[in-house]
Design a protein around this nucleic acid. Structure first.
Lengths: 209, 209
DNA sequence: CCCAGCGATGTCAGTTGCTGCCATCACGGT
DNA sequence: ACCGTGATGGCAGCAACTGACATCGCTGGG
């Protein structure tokens, strides 16, 4: 089975098979599964794609798919953990003088910068997600998890409740709005920029008289 | 009514025949299914309950369950639509002089008052939900739908973007935080009160400078 | 050099959520 | 008396997952 036939994924290692038996199986099974899934989700849509088809295209079996991904949806979301780590560590490392909401904004901007570099694949991914309710549910729970992680990071900075929870949830709200604009806008403003703008707008909207 | 029989004697199928053949089937199939589902979700947990069991306890078949509820989770969420209608109409009917964020807060407080009257069943329901990730996903998408509906109501009031989206999302954020406190707090503060407090806290947290 | 254990995968059977299709049959109207 | 309708039953089938066990190259200790 020619792995080379499958588009190379950014995170996948060299797919070229050099001399020396490379092992019992082709390398990078996970990457092949991911690539196969993405391709099929785009070609036929998420619901119309079966796990058996994904596995077959990756040269593996259905059972193996479920050893690498908890479920059919998770293929699209395993990267969320990395983003979350980045956001949390950025919040944690902000100077004490920075207000909680601004520390969160800075962290989200950092995450935004990462997404900015993967703009096209991020958009493609989002196109798949918005077309399917199950995928939106999964995305929402990942965002909720991110909000909880931010809340926890703030509490470790000494922020009390309910301020920590509110700041975490509101940070996610800002991120959601900015991300949505970033994805379907024609101009090419940076996500970080949109996050900053959204936060400013939020401050205006919530300003007590 | 047979629903009451089920409530009182959870383990009995209780198919009581009333005078006069009241019809080909026992009345209130949907209610019986809902009651059976809630009972079983509490007794054994959501995952450990099969739809076949729910249907059997309600004296119906699995196929009929899916005619009344789109899926196994939806039993716990069909009421969300009513809440959403209430919130949207309250936002729409607020005087023009009221700031968007305060119109949303008032609408959420109205919804909170409704939940306050069903305090015990709301708590019970939440206990089931927090114990299962799939149910949390469903709850999150219902809240996201509510946020969209609020956004739409604001736009019809003439609020522009991204202010409308931000206000809708932030309203939900406030509601989530308040609801969470309401559910697991020992004192007996009203949900409406907690929503108001959370909004005030939010305004403090987002105050520029 | 050999062998035992490990790790990634395959194979297979089984459960469960969910859907489509057609049958049934009381009820209400004509 | 007949006919359409609506709520249900029955059944077959698909697809997402899971558990149990088999396979076999690789690796490390003796």
């Amino acid at each position: 089975m020619s792995v080379a036939a499958i588009t190379v994924h950014p995170t996948s290692v060299a797919v070229i098979k050099y001399d020396q038996g490379v092992g019992r199986w082709e390398p990078n099974a996970r990457g092949r599964l991911e690539q196969a899934a993405l391709t099929l989700y785009i070609e036929r849509g998420f619901e119309q794609t079966t796990v058996a088809e994904i596995a077959k295209r990756a040269g593996l079996t259905e059972r193996t798919f479920f050893r690498h991904f908890a479920d059919k949806r998770e293929v699209l979301f395993w990267g969320a953990g990395l983003l979350q780590e980045l956001v949390v560590s950025t919040v944690a490392s902000a100077p004490d003088s920075v207000a909680p909401i601004d520390a969160v904004a800075a962290a989200l901007e950092a995450a935004g910068a990462v997404l900015q570099e993967r703009r096209e694949s991020a958009r493609q991914r989002q196109t798949i997600i918005v077309a399917n309710a199950e995928l939106q549910e999964r995305e929402l729970i990942k965002l909720a998890s991110l909000a909880s992680a931010i809340t926890e990071a703030l509490r470790e900075r000494g922020v009390g409740e309910p301020a920590a929870s509110l700041t975490g949830e509101v940070g996610i709200a800002v991120f959601k709005v900015a991300f949505e604009r970033w994805v379907d806008e024609t101009d090419h403003r940076d996500l970080s920029e949109l996050i900053r703008e959204s936060l400013d707008e939020l401050k205006a909207v919530t300003a007590a008289r």
